[in-house]
Design a binder for these strands. Structure first.
Lengths: 299, 299
DNA sequence: TATATCACATCAAATAATTTGATGGGATTG
DNA sequence: CAATCCCATCAAATTATTTGATGTGATATA
């Protein structure tokens, strides 16, 4: 009957809708009116489908266009296809209250102590069914994002690299923390005195240079730590009753009982941020997650 | 980012294939090569999809084009969609040996006696799993086809009307059948003698005028039946030992034991055909069914 | 830190597909 | 038989897609 106008594969969604409409109305002309196109456009579309499916699809039987068996079968599948496409074309919706998704947050000690508890509590409040995992960012949290080991990264990881987005939460500064019985406790520290202290140095596993150290080195000084530890964990008990002094982020030090804060001459500063990858940028779940983090942690 | 080039709905199968390919290869350029099109064609297609799904779909992350969450989800559905379309686009295949379909054949007494047994036996031989139903064609078998009460119609129903197809099986003629003890048994019948016989007339429910009657009336004669019956069923016992004579299709009369055949001066003729509707024309099952019928019954 | 390279976006021109409006033929209705 | 209805088909007009050239941003190389 009909010659092949196109080889195949150029069937579009609209064509399938037309097929459905023609079937429903039993008429090309009626379908054309409903679609607000010319009758011959419908004729053309059906001709295309006929060639694609290698079947007449509709045949005239006593005034009505009746679907062939094959057409009925095709329509059954096409209906499912259109349904699937409809579903998937809907902009993604996310209802925290109903969600059973899982989110993974990468961060390090500082954030785990100071931010995670508040964040997790808020996440659980809004989304009781949500599964939350917190992983160690360790060396390079960015890699974990790229490897999809985490959805977001919280930390001082401002990297404006292609493929990453970030949002600043707040700025943090350093201060010295020591036992209340320390000779210098509560006394102002000038550069000389600061450098002569018995420093407990936190090297954070070596992958992070604290801002105060940068500042100190920029001023031409070198810090000679008495003890170096990899993380602030258990720091309070190391400092208690000792003559050691640790320079660390103010908010972190303040969580440790039994220590006093001394402003220090090199206090540096760094920004805490949420970082995520471009591929999560548009996702409704992750947009919500980031919003919760920002709301919970800023200021 | 991208402005809406098309409102929506103009997504074709090729575009979805492109989406899949880009995802698989992680590169527009590579996909373009594989599809044997220009890179900017892929770019254009993805832009169209981006606008349709309202999502970037692919974002650059460290040199690689990475799929967004949404894209992964879409792809999952799209894969199923393409699979479905692939299946449905395959020209329908039909293996009688495996088939569990059902076919319905409409016909009347003549065909049920002479043809159905052979047809059914052949159908069962080729397709043991096939369900076969035989229904009475009665008045107008064509209506049963249109109402989808039967898949094919076998009988003398040659109607070359729109929406119907048919294939001739063979031509049938009439003869007289009577008891072997009948005075005229075995003797030639001229018009006068034929008309004076005690006719047992089969009226087939009134919806069918036998060809010999047409011939007879065309010659200006009128048949005055002694008895009229609606169907040839049980005819043999009605004729046996009586002086009745029935004019009926030769092949049908020959199936009846204890009757002798006399050629009659009005023998008319009619064609036995398979008839079906246009909407079944392309179906593999029905093509096969019709083929079996034709092979079994012709000659 | 500059420079080459790679990959995608974008633009205008060329090409291909679709839609339109007109017309014709087959089938149904009165 | 005439009037209609409905789909197929054709050429022209309109749109969409593809191409080839070029731009831009990011990565890799020197």
């Amino acid at each position: 009957m009909s010659q092949t106008p196109s080889p195949s594969g150029r069937i579009d969604i609209a064509a399938l809708e037309t097929l459905r409409l023609v079937h429903a109305l039993g008429s090309f002309t009626a379908a054309a009116e409903k679609l607000d196109v010319n009758q011959s456009a419908v004729s053309y579309t059906i001709a295309k489908l006929r060639s694609y499916f290698q079947d007449p699809l509709f045949v005239r039987e006593g005034g009505q266009q009746v679907a062939t068996e094959r057409c009925e079968h095709i329509l059954q599948q096409v209906t499912e296809i259109l349904q699937k496409l409809d579903d998937v074309a809907q902009p993604e919706k996310f209802d925290p209250a109903q969600s059973r998704s899982k989110v993974t947050i990468a961060c390090n000690y500082y954030e785990r102590i100071l931010m995670i508890p508040k964040i997790v509590s808020e996440l659980r409040r809004q989304a009781p069914g949500l599964e939350v995992e917190v992983v160690n960012a360790l060396g390079d949290g960015h890699l974990r994002l790229l490897r999809r080991e985490a959805d977001v990264l919280i930390g001082p990881f401002a990297r404006s690299q292609s493929g990453f987005h970030s949002r600043r939460l707040y700025t943090e500064h350093y201060a010295c923390f020591m036992d209340p019985g320390h000779p210098m406790a509560g006394r102002a520290l000038d550069v000389e005195r600061y450098l002569q202290l018995n420093h407990l140095y936190i090297n954070y596993g070596g992958s992070w240079k604290s801002a105060y150290v940068t500042e100190l080195e920029a001023a031409g000084h070198t810090l000679r730590p008495t003890i170096a530890v990899p993380s602030p964990a258990g720091l309070a008990s190391l400092l208690s009753g000792s003559n050691l002094v640790a320079t660390m982020p103010i908010r972190l030090g303040k969580t440790m009982d039994g220590l006093v804060l001394n402003p220090c001459p090199f206090q540096g500063h760094f920004d805490l941020s949420v970082v995520w990858t471009a591929h999560k940028n548009a996702s409704a779940v992750h947009r919500w997650l980031r919003e919760v983090i920002v709301e919970t942690c800023r200021g």
